[in-house]
Amino acid sequence: MFFHIVLERNMQLHPRYFGRNLRDNLVSKLMKDVEGTCSGRHGFVVAVTGIENIGKGLIRDGTGFVTFPVKYQCVVFRPFKGEILEAVVTMVNKMGFFAEAGPVQIFVSNHLIPDDMEFQSGDMPNYTTSDGSVKIQKDSEVRLKIIGTRVDATEIFCIGTIKDDFLGVINDPATV
């Protein structure tokens, strides 16, 4: 699920960026630093959308770096159990397949793939129905449901299922 929230971060800025572009430099550095990171608490930071407030800088002893407390708005993405996501298959093996929904990695084990789909090994390993009408392989887009998440301090990993109504392949690259 996506959230738009305000976060705070202490930014250290090298003295060489001081000048009339200080603020812009600070913001671009903030974006570079936080976008794409993941915290267990808030999820993945997708994008910084605005700066709320930049506090007074504090010159660090010895280095000349200046620390600015920055409050910024950002969009975060945090997967939840039971959530339905659309994801792209990245790898298929006989244990199941991995998919990515943006930054989130999702594993779908073969028990959570409908029983009528069988694993086909080969050059392009895939799961195919017996009549061959539906095929899950690398780069397929699937809609899946998250049934478990592991949230570490800097990492979120999910397991999903496509064994439910309206889940499964939504766009097969082979047919497009």
Binding site: M91, N93, M95, G96, F98, Q105, F107, S109, H111, L112, I147, G148, T149, R150, F157, I159, T161, K163
Partner: peptide, 28 residues
Amino acid sequence: LDNKNTIEEYICTKCGKRYNALDALRLV
């Protein structure tokens, strides 16, 4: 029966260590 919401468990044939599906990424 319908394998709903079961998190798969894996066991090492050699050392008997257990993992579950949430570890999958590291195990590949």
